[in-house]
Nucleic acid binder design. Sequence first.
DNA 1: CGATTCCTTGAAGGTTGTCAACGTTGGTGG
DNA 2: CCACCAACGTTGACAACCTTCAAGGAATCG
Lengths: 269, 269
Amino acid sequence: MQKIANISGAPWDAPPQGGPDQCPTGDEPKQSQRVRGELTVGQRQLNTIFGGSPTRVLDAGEILGAAVGASDAICRLRAGWACEFRGFANGTRAIVDVYLPGDVLGLDAIFGTRSLDEISTLSTVTIETIPTAAAMIELMGSRPTALYVAWLLSRRQRRADRLLAALSRLDARGRLATMTLDFCTRLRRRRLIAGLVYNLPMTQTQIGDYLGLTVVHINRVLRALRHARIVTLEKHCVTIHDIERLKSLAENGETVNSRTIVGERSLNG
Amino acid sequence: MQKIANISGAPWDAPPQGGPDQCPTGDEPKQSQRVRGELTVGQRQLNTIFGGSPTRVLDAGEILGAAVGASDAICRLRAGWACEFRGFANGTRAIVDVYLPGDVLGLDAIFGTRSLDEISTLSTVTIETIPTAAAMIELMGSRPTALYVAWLLSRRQRRADRLLAALSRLDARGRLATMTLDFCTRLRRRRLIAGLVYNLPMTQTQIGDYLGLTVVHINRVLRALRHARIVTLEKHCVTIHDIERLKSLAENGETVNSRTIVGERSLNG
DNA sequence: CGATTCCTTGAAGGTTGTCAACGTTGGTGG
DNA sequence: CCACCAACGTTGACAACCTTCAAGGAATCG
């Protein structure tokens, strides 16, 4: 197996090609032409604002609210990954969303929620910043921008619903299948990758926090999926070998014989 | 124990008092005066639209998209409960959100998502309808309305995040504690109830789909919570006995001795 | 009152968590 | 260069939580 690229210089450090996000209408064929047009205009308007703002580089593991010095700022990820989390009284925590390059963070600040205080970087990141929520509210006087903001919120909601369904009704393999497929889809849609291989800057502990499982179990199921030659997740690098079976696991449509799988031997070469 | 009111005439059939939703700023003390004002204006504008629309009554168990005959309509619940679900290939399903009187449903239709096709009524409901998403897009030309729509989306997101955290890191008792508390909070905020008792028009199967558990286990844990005199859920009626312990369970802060609890005897008199 | 759905309970087994230990990796400083 | 350290990854044994299967009871409705 070839040597995996180190964290510095990894794909997620590359700036998004052709703008921070592709046209938002790429996967919504049902919406009317008019909304498509307005959304594109709104996106351009936000592009202008973010593009004109100074960029900052943050290390992995920083809390965005503290790092930018304002809880009501609104950021866009230019490079790197981040996650939004919720903590519990006993110290455990859950990751409720993962942000990829091009995603906008902290939109809830419009309504006074200090969401940047619950967002942490997963890797070294580059962010563009609108310093205050007030500026964003101003921008929402333009309907295209307001529509685009609503579209961003709606997209985040769909991710949450999808994760919710997976946590609710899939076992560990199904959840991992869903996660690896979703990240792949999002990265491809933004043309950050082209094939079925990508870098995933999350530790197994963080994956466990995201999928509602423990590190130990994540580790075991990862091994099973690797030995079954469905997907490999090693050294922060995901390689999808059998996308059909992966989709099947994510749809709850297959019961892969996991006991048999574990007994097999890795034959990668 | 007193006889529980039947479904007809139950609290969730009563129209929301003082308008379909209270001022949205009630639980967001941090937001600026200006946003508060604009949100209130936006809410009034939507109130006018919905208030002037014809109401419809639907039976329990209907799919909203089919019942209103349009997948891109936008509805507001005047009375009754509804839920949004996601299905899996093998027939299982997950409930990703529960809607209470006053909630707006199907906002994603703005972007072409047929969300009404994945929303089902949980009880007999009364709805007000904006027939097409296009009308709502028109309304978003007004910044107050656009802000209010974004606020509605943001609220739904926060519910999803909270449920996500619960599914990710709480056991069955913690999830049930979270659910019963959240419904209570939402109903009280809208002045649909005043105390710690309310009607919950969901079967145990539906609760299981919502919390990612099986009916059988919901049933057992419900019995344990009842015998521990923390919360009673019988015949679609929730009674919170010990809100402190319930909050503790929802925050992962307590490990109630459940084995002992099961051995106890019900003493409700 | 038959039919359907919902609720309830027991027994058995599978998935996942907990505990504990050790290996690996990458960085730091002597 | 090596010792050391901290974080992360890996593995085994065992326990707990939850599901599955099965069956019977209770409520609701035409």
